[in-house]
């Protein structure tokens, strides 16, 4: 239990997926203009990521390892993620049309969201167990949503600011992300290893 809490805190705050592993930057730069769509995107990613990491663990541990098929690891992981995204997309389309409209193009893009494949790969290199993998995927998603929402809030405020034309758009977002990364470094003393 203690280990799971440690994984949660360190993945959400200290080694945040976006700010210290640079995973999921594309949606971070693209979608994070409105708080509602940031929240929707964050929830979709958290959901897919917890499931994908758990399923990838089971496949890795019980199929790939015993049969010595590690070379297929990447192909298998990406197929798991792609099929999961398809399922989530159909689910959201059926039950919440407004959410589907607002996420639009970004839903299929979750497939190529490196955060999800990244969490499956980190799960393998860090030799997590099943429960740890699911918690790791879930907290990665929570950390991603947290930063996405903070960023959306900042960008809403920045819309009224007078900024030099060359910094408009992506450059400013990147610099704000850099400052956020500096701020999040302050959390690194939270857990003494």
């Amino acid at each position: 239990m203690e280990k799971l809490i440690l994984i949660f805190i360190s993945t959400v705050l200290i080694n945040n997926f976006v700010l210290s592993y640079f995973l999921g930057i594309c949606p971070f730069l693209g979608v994070s203009g409105k708080i509602e769509s940031a929240l929707g995107m964050g929830m979709a990613v958290t959901f897919v990521m917890s499931l994908a990491t758990g399923i990838s663990y089971l496949i890795y541990e019980y199929i790939l390892l015993p049969w010595n098929l590690m070379i297929l690891q990447y192909v298998v992981f990406i197929l798991v993620i792609a099929s999961l995204v398809q399922v989530v997309e159909m689910f959201i389309k059926k039950y919440s049309n407004s959410l589907y409209q607002s996420l639009g193009i970004y839903l299929p893009l979750i497939t190529t969201n490196c955060a999800i494949l990244g969490s499956a790969l980190f799960m393998v290199t860090r030799k997590y167990g099943f429960l740890e993998s699911v918690v790791f995927g879930f907290s990665g998603g929570v950390g991603f949503s947290l930063v996405l929402i903070i960023m959306a809030g900042i960008r809403q405020e920045l819309e009224d600011a007078d900024i030099p034309s060359v910094f408009k758009g992506a450059p400013l977002t990147l610099i704000v992300a850099g400052l956020l990364a500096l701020i999040f470094m302050g959390f690194s003393g939270l857990i003494s290893s």
Partner: peptide, 24 residues
């Protein structure tokens, strides 16, 4: 800080701005 994650964001942001400036 430049080889830490924060530096990556800052340098890329500045380089993109520089590219925009050159285009201008």
């Amino acid at each position: 800080a430049m080889i830490l994650p924060a530096g990556a964001f800052l340098v890329l942001g500045l380089l993109v701005a520089l590219m925009n400036r050159i285009e201008e």
